[in-house]
Amino acid sequence: MASDLVIRPARAEDEREIVELLRSAWSRVSEPGPERPADAAVFDERHPVEGFLVAERGRRIVGYVAQAPAGPLESNRHVRHIQGLAVLESARGSGVGAALVEAACDAARAAGARRMTLRVLGHNGPARQLYRRCGFAVVGVLPEEFLLDGAYVDDVWMSRRLSDPDEPAHR
């Protein structure tokens, strides 16, 4: 990671810059949903600002990662899920994505999580490679889950252990 990169918790005032980043990074390679409108909110009940980390170079946000509990049940509160990751095109290949993923895993581990999960489109080779380098493994594939621009695309589920398997469960 470049020494001038700072990973920090997102703040409410970062929302506009994160929206711009999301709009610049949007493509059918990484996103099955529609392009985000310029006035769309990033932070909401399902995506609270506390779940976001941003990567800054200078005073500019060059990437973000969002994570949240994997589901609403107490019985799987030990699992966190990466809800989104984006890096400015000009900052790709410089370690920003890996730094964000590792920071999200560190934050989840510090909060008591034992596992991190994520979903990635099957045709997104660069993202799948990044997640593999960060210790994630494929745990499932939903074949042809999305129809994007006339082609069927798999939904790949990946997971990574965050804790020692012999560590006792927290109750």
Rank of each mutant, 00 (worst) to 15 (best):
P37L: 09
D44T: 02
N76V: 15
P72C: 00
V54M: 05
L88Y: 00
R59H: 14
S75R: 15
P72G: 00
P69I: 00
E45F: 07
E15G: 01
Q67V: 00
A107Q: 13
R23N: 05
V120K: 00
P48E: 03
P9V: 03
V153S: 04
L162P: 15
E45M: 10
G112N: 07
E56P: 05
S90F: 02
R28N: 03
R80W: 04
A108T: 05
F43Y: 07
P165K: 14
D155E: 14
E15I: 10
P32F: 07
A70T: 03
F52H: 02
P37M: 03
A113Q: 00
A103H: 10
G58D: 13
D166G: 14
A68S: 04
L142P: 01
A55I: 09
L22E: 11
A151Q: 15
R59D: 15
R128T: 05
G33V: 09
A41T: 08
G125R: 04
G125M: 01
L85E: 07
A86Q: 05
D154A: 08
E145P: 02
A68H: 00
Q129K: 08
D4M: 01
E89L: 12
A98R: 15
A70M: 01
V62W: 14
A99R: 15
L88C: 03
I7Y: 07
M158H: 12
D149H: 07
W26T: 10
R80F: 09
I7V: 08
D155H: 08
V138Y: 01
L162D: 13
P143A: 15
S30F: 05
V87H: 07
R36V: 12
V6K: 10
R161W: 15
V6L: 11
R109T: 06
H78D: 04
A169N: 08
E102L: 06
S27E: 11
I18T: 10
G97W: 06
R160D: 10
W157F: 15
S27P: 11
V120H: 04
A70G: 03
P37W: 02
V156A: 11
G71R: 08
N76R: 15
A98D: 12
R8C: 02
P37G: 04
R11V: 09
A55Y: 11
P48N: 14
R60Y: 06
R128C: 05
R59N: 14
A10S: 10
P168N: 12
V29E: 13
L148E: 13
V156E: 14
R16G: 14
R59E: 12
A107L: 08
C105M: 08
Y64Q: 06
P69R: 06
E145K: 10
A10C: 09
S159L: 12
P9Y: 02
R133I: 09
F146T: 14
H78K: 07
V101I: 15
R92K: 13
V62A: 15
A70Q: 11
G150Q: 05
V141I: 14
E167F: 11
L100F: 04
H170A: 13
E50I: 00
L21T: 13
S94I: 00
A137R: 12
S27R: 04
R171E: 11
R36P: 03
G63Q: 06
A137Y: 00
S75V: 12
